[in-house]
């Protein structure tokens, strides 16, 4: 299959240093669900939300997938197109992608297989009031 240059963000590379909201530094591969929850609690602008994977379909390009999420209590339907190796953080499980082998190959980031029903960490903007 054609392999276009990967333009994924660099911070998914194993060993990348991530700063939590309280200033603590952690490697991307060491992040836990609690790190996201606690960072969002501190944040004045962002709140954590859960996004459940409802569908995974082929995207328009060979290496892309369309993932449909049901977001938050209102179950807002959101569809995103990402490369198959794009990792999402699943509550209680950790990094997961549609093609974990490719994620591991490209980023050296251990991943589980992202499946329908998985609940991913996502963010929404807090209401200003």
């Amino acid at each position: 299959s054609p392999s276009s240059p990967v333009a994924l963000p660099p911070f998914f590379m194993r060993g990348s240093i991530i700063q939590l909201a309280d200033g603590e530094l952690k490697r991307v591969e060491d992040l836990k669900t609690e790190d996201f929850i606690q960072s969002a609690e501190i944040s004045s602008e962002l709140k954590i939300d859960s996004s459940t994977v409802e569908r995974i379909d082929c995207g328009q390009s060979p290496n892309a997938v369309l993932i449909q999420f049901s977001v938050g209590e209102l179950k807002a339907q959101v569809c995103v197109e990402v490369l198959v190796e794009y990792p999402f953080f699943v509550f209680g499980q950790g990094w997961s992608s549609c093609c974990p082998d490719r994620t591991t190959q490209l980023f050296e980031l251990s991943c589980a297989k992202l499946c329908v029903g998985d609940v991913c960490v996502s963010l929404t903007l807090r209401s200003l009031r």
């Binding site: 991530i18 903007l125 009031r129």
Partner: peptide, 25 residues
């Protein structure tokens, strides 16, 4: 092996997709 003098640090929220931003009055 050359140790980099400065290592980029990324904010935690970079790793999380923003989905369905909410705006309410």
């Amino acid at each position: 092996n050359v140790e980099p003098r400065s290592v980029p640090v990324f904010p935690w929220h970079s790793l999380v997709p923003f989905l369905a931003p909410t705006q309410s009055d």
